[in-house]
């Protein structure tokens, strides 16, 4: 049913998609110190999601991606609002402990990281949603062409 069921793409996607998932989170977490961050990580994750649906059209994400974008906005807003409850100005960074992760390096926990996660979710949700809606229209258009009597 999908035109992407070639002999190269599905096996490659099966290998690539989990790697891309991990890579997107890797990019998100290292972003504060090295190239990366929520925006870039989100684009990678969106690519991975679309790639997965391209080769397995029935495996669409269960959560509506626009809702994911909404959740991302909420997360970012909450991160921005946390300092208000500590008597600081909106958007002030509230910092926690620092610890090291393998591959990623040192990470300092804090509201700034949470804010970046919000950005990550919004970018993922919007980019993947638009592409998947287009993909769904393309697929449905191919399987059942509309005819007028």
């Amino acid at each position: 049913m999908s035109d992407y069921s070639t002999s190269i793409l599905p096996p490659a996607a099966r290998l690539l998609v989990p790697v891309l998932y991990a890579f997107s989170i890797f990019l998100l977490l290292r972003g504060h110190n090295l190239p990366g961050g929520g925006f870039i990580g989100g684009l990678v994750l969106a690519t991975a999601l679309v790639l997965r649906v391209m080769v397995q059209p029935d495996k669409a994400p269960r959560l509506d991606l626009i809702v994911l974008a909404g959740i991302g906005l909420m997360v970012a807003l909450i991160a921005a609002a946390v300092p208000l409850f500590l008597g600081q100005e909106l958007f002030t960074g509230v910092w926690g402990p620092e610890f090291a992760l393998p591959l990623v390096g040192k990470i300092k926990l804090g509201t700034v990281l949470v804010f970046d996660i919000g950005v990550f979710l919004v970018v993922t949700g919007v980019a993947a949603k638009i592409l998947l809606v287009l993909l769904a229209q393309l697929l449905s258009g191919q399987t059942a062409p509309r005819r007028r009597s």
Binding site: P35, G37, A80, K108, V112, V126, A127
Partner: peptide, 30 residues
């Protein structure tokens, strides 16, 4: 801001309000 990637620090800390506006626009455009 405890970050060595100044681009990211600007995006999520120094100019976080701008970024919030941008992701809001992005979500609405979506």
């Amino acid at each position: 801001a405890f970050g060595r990637n100044v681009v990211n620090v600007i995006l999520v800390d120094f100019r976080a309000l701008d970024t919030l506006g941008e992701i809001l626009v992005l979500a609405l455009a979506g």
